[in-house]
Computed example of a mutant assay.
Amino acid sequence: MSQKVGDRLKAVRSMYGLSQRELARRAGVTNSTISTIEQNRVSPSIDSLAKVLAGIPMTLIDFFTIDLDTGEEIFFNKEDLVELADGTMSMRLVGATRKDRNLRVLHETYPAGGDTGDKLIVQKGEEAGVIVRGKLEVTVGERVKILGPGDAYYFNAEIPHRFRNVGDGECEVVSAATPPSY
Rank of each mutant, 00 (worst) to 15 (best):
E137G: 00
R92Q: 14
K51C: 01
I34G: 06
D47A: 15
H161P: 01
V174M: 11
V140Q: 09
N165F: 04
G117R: 04
L18D: 09
E22D: 13
I159F: 00
R133F: 07
D118H: 10
V42F: 01
N102L: 13
V166N: 01
K99W: 03
R92I: 09
D86L: 07
I66A: 06
S14L: 12
S181D: 08
Y154T: 01
Q123P: 00
A177K: 07
I159M: 02
N156Q: 06
Q39A: 12
S2R: 11
S32L: 08
G150I: 04
R41S: 12
D69S: 13
A24R: 07
K124D: 15
V166P: 06
T116S: 15
S48F: 00
A96Q: 14
T59G: 14
P149W: 01
V173C: 11
L84P: 00
E170M: 09
V94Y: 15
R104W: 06
V29Y: 04
K119A: 14
R25F: 00
G148V: 11
V94D: 01
V140E: 10
G169Y: 04
V29L: 06
L84W: 09
Y110T: 03
E72K: 01
R104L: 15
P149V: 03
V138H: 05
G95Y: 11
G28N: 08
A11P: 01
G125Y: 07
A176E: 04
M91R: 14
V122P: 04
D47N: 13
A177H: 05
E73Y: 01
P180W: 12
L120M: 15
L68V: 07
D115L: 05
T97G: 13
L53H: 09
I61F: 07
S90I: 13
V122I: 15
D115W: 07
A96W: 09
K4Q: 15
G150H: 05
K51D: 03
L53C: 05
I66H: 06
